[in-house]
Design a protein around this nucleic acid. Structure first.
Lengths: 219, 219
DNA sequence: ACCTCTAAGTACCGTACGGTACGGTTCTTT
DNA sequence: AAAGAACCGTACCGTACGGTACTTAGAGGT
């Protein structure tokens, strides 16, 4: 949230500052508020520099997504031996983090932006958002789920399906509702706990696993 | 999907035709393609009439939502005595219908529109969409779930929570992904079947119910 | 001291949109 | 048939935005 992102790979410090300001404008006013002139004024740079750096307004938007995602690093903390309680804790932390990320100002603003553009640009921004932004948190969950299976604590046929089940239990329709303007949950922890509870009921090893009969078809 | 909605309450036939054309424009080109001049040309009406009827561009958008929702009627079919198989069937039909609705062209376009506007208009359109559009399908599901509980086939503490569980299992992140431009599922039936399977594992009475411990806090 | 490069600031252009006004046409009412 | 409303088509206005060009100020090198 600060404008002091220790080390950015792809953008110069000046560009990063401009992109941070662009995100700020986007968050507070939606995409209508993000005009080239407005950004130039707010970031104290020239429009010409904007076009030199990002080429285009769409280039600017894409750069904003890249920039934001370069700032979000998911902590990859595994390695300890998993117990049932540890797995539950990690799942709950993941669920809370997921809700936290999805309800973040910048995330919502970028998702709204990409959704708004999806009709015109062939979902280019949407793909960027899903591919780069989601992959990190997806990988974390997948790692956790796989580790749970390896430790004999989870039971499922299709890891992808299991992950989507977890995701659905955690998020339900909250993401869309927040995108539509509803306020976030008062307490993500409750939602996270209930979702993990249900997930473990479905896929935990100590009780029973839903067999899922013929469930090999792909998404 | 046809432009022959037997009887529209709120709008004259002419206005309905114009609104249908507006929805068509919105679906095929996004909100940028929905200009007053473009709509007037496409619907063979004058801009002056548009402003007389709907007052404003925002009024037009709101009217489009009302119009679309006046066309979507959910079949309220209950009354028969519930068996476990019947409940499962009804739940699967509901799940398929839900996925069908959410992946519909018009629904996606209107949701994109409302999400795009949510930063500027204080989520007026978003509220309309959630309140009027969702309530119908929500009520259908709630009726089904309540009937299942009365028949002793479902077990849960909080009907609202149970419904959101079902919703999350059915939809997962599909809605947002589709809003971002991803294609819909090839086969909604598979997803529906798996979701209902999981839901019954969680809340069906014949196996066991997730106790849910202390789960009375509200959303 | 001079040159060069970068970038800020500003002015400008073309376009496109929301909203309004007006003349002409069709349909309804009496 | 005459009067009136509804409405279409079009022209128009003001504004705002994306994008470009030009001028000016500072930083580093020779």
């Amino acid at each position: 949230m600060s404008s002091q992102p220790s080390q950015i790979t792809e953008f110069s410090p000046r560009q990063s500052a401009v992109l941070a300001e662009a995100l700020r404008l986007l968050v507070e006013g939606g995409d209508k508020a993000l005009t080239t002139a407005g950004l130039a004024r707010a970031a104290s740079c020239s429009k010409e520099s904007l076009y030199k750096w990002f080429g285009d307004r769409d280039g600017l938007l894409a750069a904003m997504i890249s920039f934001q995602q370069s700032k979000v690093r998911t902590v990859e903390r595994s390695g300890e031996r998993l117990t049932a309680e540890l797995l539950r804790d990690h799942l709950e932390v993941f669920a809370r983090d997921l809700l936290e990320v999805l309800s973040g100002d910048v995330s919502l603003a970028l998702n709204r932006l990409a959704i708004g553009q999806s009709s015109r640009d062939g979902s280019k921004l949407g793909r960027m958002l899903v591919e780069h932004g989601r992959r990190q948190i997806d990988r974390r969950a997948r790692g956790l789920i796989d580790a749970g299976k390896r430790a004999g604590l989870l039971r499922f046929d299709d890891a992808d399906h299991a992950y989507h089940t977890l995701y659905g239990l955690v998020v339900s329709d909250l993401h869309v509702r927040m995108l539509l303007g509803e306020p976030a949950l008062k307490d993500n922890a409750i939602q996270a706990r209930r979702a993990v509870e249900a997930f473990l009921t479905l896929h935990g090893a100590q009780r029973n696993g839903a067999d899922g009969s013929a469930t090999a078809a792909g998404r």
